[in-house]
Design a binder for these strands. Structure first.
Lengths: 201, 201
DNA sequence: GCCACAACTATACGGTAGTTCAACAGAGAA
DNA sequence: TTCTCTGTTGAACTACCGTATAGTTGTGGC
């Protein structure tokens, strides 16, 4: 006795929506097991679709990886865009960097994996160059703003480049051994780093 | 016409020597292509031996990976052991960290790969805990030494933990985009980081 | 010279990688 | 309803993964 309204065998989405979900699934796999879990089988299982979809929507696994990288970068920078009620932009940036959505094990597991790929994969390298330059400039501007307000003369660019490296290193440490480097510790370390140059902000 | 003294089909080494060469080959592959090039085929080809040797000498690829990690750590810390003619231990440490043998693209490509594995592979994790703690204590002691000599009161431990993260971050940046962060820049950044707390040293 | 042992080669095996492709099916247009 | 487009399935393909193992060969002790 056939049902009149059979449940559909699959949910059909727009290409854009499906791509977003595959990227999300890719991020989940990467957070769980690095590049070794970033495979067709694992990602499609995570997304609940058949193996054919990644190639259909992205053309190759490498293209999906690039998309994942872009998404990760957008996600981080977006959080730092809209903020600052009464605080300085620099303080707001730091708060954003060390918010739980950004500063957590999963996220840095992903970053660690992606950084490892950047120096290998030319596509990622190019994407990275632009994104990273913007990121550093953002931080440098925020530092500059405080320095000007305080009447201090600092090399905002050099300071920003170091600070950004410090943040990366703190994140890695948190990822590898969370208890030894928690968000508050990391934020304090950044403030401590800036303190002699900018005073409190 | 058979030769009396035929050239041997392979060179036979002691287990220890062969293991060392396989580790070296593994490092070379990892530097070249991350964990994805760290495979039986690639490593054995690099070492110029047949595919069976890794299992024979290490039992598993995972064991080779652990050995590679240990070797990498030993190599870095050994360079920081024997030095200091008239300079402070801290200055000597910094010089060692940013020496070409330690601070270069290949090395940080390997570190990036290994860090990515640490948070996944429990064996590596345990090994890392001990090594890293020693490393930080070393740096903290060196900072303390300078602080005492200068009569300054600093939290050497916190400073060391931050400095170590900063160094990691600087290395990553150098690895990803060498021209934007060279050894001298990185060393200067560390000195700049310590300057307000310790003065020049 | 011969033996015994360990280093080494060579190949096989089951599993899984990324990609290709023909066929199926949901959804909007006519 | 029927057509068309395209998202989607699922199996097939080649290549390579790590591991296991049988057989070969170099070497040092007797």
């Amino acid at each position: 006795m056939p049902q009149k309204a059979t449940s559909p065998k699959y949910v059909r989405l727009t290409g854009e929506e499906r791509r977003a979900r595959l990227i999300e699934a890719g991020l989940a796999c990467m957070a769980r097991g690095g590049i070794q879990e970033f495979t067709v089988d694992k990602i499609c299982a995570e997304a609940g679709v058949s193996r054919g979809l990644i190639i259909h929507h992205f053309g190759s696994m490498n293209a999906l990886l690039t998309a994942v990288y872009a998404t990760m970068y957008d996600g981080s920078t977006k959080l730092t865009r809209d903020l600052a009620p009464g605080e300085t932009r620099l303080a707001a940036l730091l708060n954003a960097f060390f918010a739980p959505e950004v500063f957590n094990r999963e996220a840095f597991n992903i970053w660690l994996t992606l950084w490892g790929q950047i120096s290998i994969n030319p596509d990622l390298r190019d994407e990275h160059r632009v994104q990273y330059a913007d990121y550093v400039r953002d931080v440098a501007d925020a530092i500059s703003e405080v320095a000007v307000a305080r009447g201090r003369n600092v090399d905002a660019d050099a300071l920003a480049r170091s600070l950004v490296c410090l943040i990366d290193g703190l994140g890695i440490q948190h990822c590898i051994e969370p208890t030894s480097m928690q968000a508050d510790d990391a934020k304090a370390a950044c403030r401590f780093f800036l303190l002699p140059h900018l005073g409190s902000f």
